[in-house]
Design a protein around this nucleic acid. Structure first.
Length: 885
RNA sequence: GGGCGCAUAGCUCAGUUGGUUAGAGCACUAGCCUUACAAGCUAGGGGUCCUAAGUUCGAAUCUUAGUGCGCCCACCA
């Protein structure tokens, strides 16, 4: 006993078993294996990322499924890797350059990219090491990276394939222009801030009749030189008569049409809005809808350009705004000024408002690609867990917009497009072209932009396995089994992988998509850096151990949805681990150094042992069912119940009787059953809690019914068909358990000291009294009974408490402890409860429609139940009368 | 504003095609240092299954409306 600590110390074992697994090579999947394949692709974290709780949950779920399938004999490949994360990495590197007193533009593109590579080598991929602490059994030999030569080659290939099929085109779009940095920035670098501004109302006179006109309302009067329409709601009575006519833009004296569009809100402002398609995202959309001209009125630095009239030219946009208002006042066109608080997009970098700017971008045509992806979901070939996400997925795909794949960054895959200075045409190809494919000129310039990071990660099911080459890896590991990811990226990533899967291979990249829960704090707020409400997984792994963290995460998290988590929750996992450890200590103590135990012999095994064995097989069955449906938290709960409630609370307690005695065959059999079931529990627990289960499993004596490979992670997962079952005996023991619970309850009610032994009398049929006779030693030990009498003719003794169950009435004489008043009120409440049930059942059975229409089994069940409850009721009444009288 | 979803014990949630007395974990209460574990054992209290109407022999479960909440997308000139 002394060789075991009273608590499990994870620090002693985690490193040890991790190394054992690594040395065993069991993480690695063979491409030429004869076993069935099971592949999961890790959602590649940003190479800049640090492990957070969301990763913790997401990867624990993946590891559980992988370990479960591996133990079931599958050739499991869990592909790890990272994403080059264009924006995030570039921002990190720029930050460090800033601290060195230099900048991206100063270094130039080539040197900057060099810096990015250096940064990645030094700081990147830390999350990969952190995943190992969690116990993630990834195929580490296959670790992939979206900027590696292999994956970059795949990106190039898919670009060229799509281009050659006419699915990539160049189009115009508004980008977020930073007038200080004179560069476009990504959406992620734009922060929206509330500012106090004004809403100005001013008049645009009607063409040919300056007396008439419309009053528009705007927050950005300086863009008026780029106006190409004025829009009103089609049903707005105030303006209906003007639709189709022209108004004059003041100062530039340009005629623009009044158009009708649903987008306009009659009740906002004046109900009339100026449209500047080149300087506002909504106006841009409307410009496209109505085929309006796009007029850019600004220079790259945000000053007004030559299109604007003389006094405004070269003024900064905010100076121009002031002057516009001044001039409008002078011209008596300004009607009124309202203060207006509204959101303005700011550049996160330079802290100035961004200016939407028209520019050429590359797009992927999505409509055709989406078709098979839609079909896959509709036909249920592609399934979502929980299924409610299917609608979201379909809604997006059915209204899909073309995908803008160019990003104004340097870090990433530079767009493989070359512009010819001579003929103006573009060239592309798998190799960098040395001459224009149209005019053979060598005056080529590559597009400055890079591809969206998702344009490389949508190939994740393919490129890490060697695509476009038809490698053995690709043949074996594509498609994967299930994708475990966060619902936020259903469009960005999930749907796109499906589309490219069909485009390249004509197949789904995965059949199941599981969305894990979002982790929140106890107030239901998402974990976020800015709130600082997150839990650091590494900290809790240090404190409680990886097994505790894994167990707690999945037990708290239902499929989908949200999980409210606090650091104290991990104590629950820790308690469970400790319980397992102590069961192990107890068992090892009783085994007394034995290296092996006897084979199970059903002829000798006692009733509680058979029940426990049966519980194991039942749990193995339901856990498989839950895992199959990705209901991890339910599966883990079943494991908890088996371990704690069944094995420890009942199994070990009942076994003490045999274990305390001399070394008989009975004792050997009880030990055999305990070892067998405990090993079964370790195997069931291995996917969830790999470290403690491995430590224990390695030390358990060999049981003839379990094989013993080099590691639990490659041992056979318990299969319900192979496990012993004792349906009848299990049912019998459950009846005994029920009786024991009632005796304990009665004792507590009478406040009988736990150490005092009592007698018990049970009125029941012969079958049940025989059963009780066989179980007397356990009833005695577990219920504190020193004399048991059971049978049909048992009379009610004096001064006793009574309890009823299915087919039996229990009398426990409690003598001095009996409090008549209390017992009377308890019995009255009990009688009332049973009466209510009886009444309900009678009502049901007296209803001719019920008897006529309900299924036969339901009617029979109700009849039998009524009989049972009536029996209980009469026993209770009898006792109540005797106590009252 | 558009789309989707949720509402069951104090909290987090199960409840499988409508059918036993609606369950679990945590929390709470009481009694126990019973030699594996006080990070424990035993027992217990606690629910008009959001509201209203409907379908049905029968509704937590199905339908409709209302209320409250959440998520995603788009955001107001």
């Amino acid at each position: 006993m002394t060789q075991f600590d009273t608590t499990y110390d994870h620090k002693k074992y985690e490193k040890k078993w991790w190394n054992h697994w690594k040395e065993g090579g069991w993480f690695h999947a063979q491409a030429d294996s004869k076993k069935p394949t099971y592949t999961i692709l890790i959602p590649p974290p940003n190479v800049t990322a640090r492990l957070h709780m969301g990763h913790g949950l997401n990867n624990t779920i993946q590891d559980i499924l992988i370990r479960w399938k591996r133990m079931q004999g599958f050739n499991c490949c869990w592909l790890p890797g990272t994403d080059h994360a264009g924006i995030a990495t570039q921002m990190m590197v720029e930050k460090s350059l800033e601290s060195e007193g230099t900048s991206r533009t100063e270094l130039g593109r080539k040197k900057f990219l060099q810096k990015c590579v250096e940064w990645k080598d030094e700081n990147g991929g830390m999350i990969i090491e952190q995943l190992k602490r969690l116990g993630a059994s990834c195929d580490w030999d296959r670790e992939a990276y979206t900027m590696s030569p292999q994956l970059s080659k795949a990106v190039r290939q898919i670009f060229v394939d799509l281009y050659s099929k006419g699915l990539i085109y160049r189009g115009e779009r508004l980008v977020n222009w930073d007038p200080v940095l004179k560069t476009a920035i990504s959406d992620d670098e734009v922060v929206s801030e509330e500012v106090n501004g004004n809403l100005w109302y001013y008049r645009y006179p009607l063409e040919g009749d300056a007396e008439q006109g419309v009053v528009i309302a705007t927050t950005r009067p300086e863009t008026m030189f780029g106006d190409t329409a004025v829009a009103v709601h089609p049903e707005d009575e105030r303006y209906k008569h003007l639709i189709g006519k022209n108004v004059i833009v003041p100062f530039v004296n340009r005629a623009i049409p009044v158009i009708a569009d649903d987008y306009v809100k009659s009740e906002y402002g004046s109900g009339c809005v100026k449209i500047t398609p080149a300087h506002d995202p909504n106006d841009f959309e409307m410009g496209k809808r109505h085929d309006l001209p796009f007029i850019n009125v600004m220079n790259l630095d945000g000053s007004m350009n030559e299109i604007c009239p003389e006094p405004f030219q070269n003024l900064d946009r905010f100076e121009a705004r002031k002057l516009v208002i001044k001039k409008l006042k002078e011209s008596k066109l300004l009607e009124k000024t309202e203060s207006n608080r509204h959101a303005v997009p700011f550049s996160d970098r330079s802290k100035v408002p961004i200016e939407p700017r028209l520019s050429k971008q590359w797009y992927v045509k999505m409509a055709e690609l989406a078709k098979p992806a839609i079909e896959a979901a509709k036909s249920k070939e592609l399934k979502f867990y929980p299924p409610s996400w299917e609608k979201t997925y379909l809604h997006w795909l059915e209204n899909i917009q073309d995908w803008c794949i160019s990003r104004q960054l340097w870090w990433g895959h530079q767009i493989p497009i070359w512009y010819c200075d001579d003929c103006g045409e573009v060239s592309t190809g798998l190799e960098d072209p040395s001459e224009c494919s149209h005019c053979q000129s060598s005056n080529l310039k590559q597009d400055e932009d890079v591809l969206d990071t998702w344009f490389s990660s949508w190939l994740w099911p393919l490129s890490p396995f060697g695509w476009p080459e038809e490698t053995q890896d690709l043949k074996t590991f594509f498609p994967s089994a299930v994708l475990i990811t966060a619902p936020e990226i259903i469009y960005l990533w999930v749907a796109r992988m499906v589309m490219v899967g069909y485009f390249t291979k004509g197949a789904l990249p995965f059949k199941d998509v599981y969305f894990n829960a979002t982790i929140c704090d106890k107030q239901g707020r998402k974990f976020s850096k800015t709130l600082g409400n997150g839990i650091d997984p590494l900290k809790v792994i240090d404190q409680f151990g990886a097994d505790s963290v894994r167990y707690t995460c999945v037990s708290l998290a239902p499929l989908g949805g949200r999980v409210k988590m606090a650091e104290t929750d991990f104590e629950a996992g820790n308690k469970f681990i400790n319980k397992i450890w102590n069961a192990y200590r107890f068992l090892m103590g009783k085994l007394d150094g034995k290296a092996t135990v006897a084979s199970l012999n059903p002829d000798v095994l006692d009733l509680p042992s058979k029940w426990l064995l049966h519980e194991l097989s039942e749990t193995a069955k339901v856990m498989d069912q839950y895992f199959d449906k990705y209901q991890i938290s339910e599966a883990v709960e079943a494991l908890f119940h088996l371990t704690w409630r069944s094995y420890c609370d009942w199994g070990l307690e009942a076994a003490k009787d045999a274990l305390d005695g001399k070394p008989t065959e009975q004792r050997e059999q009880t030990l055999s059953a305990l070892v067998y079931v405990f090993e079964g529990i370790m195997r069931l627990a291995a996917p969830v809690m790999p470290f403690i289960s491995e430590e224990i499993w390695q030390n358990l004596p060999a049981h003839p019914a379990w094989e013993k490979p080099d590691s639990l992670m490659i041992a056979k997962y318990p299969k319900v068909d192979d496990l012993p079952k004792f349906v009848e005996e299990a049912g019998q023991w459950k009846q005994v358990q029920d009786l024991i619970s009632h005796v304990r309850s009665v004792r507590t009610q009478a406040k009988v000291p736990p150490k005092d032994k009592l007698a018990a009398f049970v009125r029941c049929d012969k079958q049940f009294s025989d059963l009780l006779g066989r179980c007397e030693k356990w009833i005695s030990r577990l219920a504190g009974i020193n004399a048991l009498a059971a049978g049909e003719g048992i009379a009610k003794p004096e001064k006793c408490l009574v309890a009823t169950g299915k087919g039996w009435t229990l009398y426990v004489p409690v003598g001095q402890y009996l409090d008549f008043e209390k017992e009377k009120s308890r019995l009255e409440a009990e009688v009332k409860r049973v009466e209510r049930i009886v009444k309900g059942l009678e009502g049901k059975l007296n209803n001719p429609n019920f008897v006529k229409k309900a299924p036969k089994e339901v009617v029979e069940q109700s009849t039998a139940q009524l009989e049972n409850m009536q029996g209980q009721l009469s026993s209770l009444r009898e006792n109540l009368e005797s106590i009252s009288g």
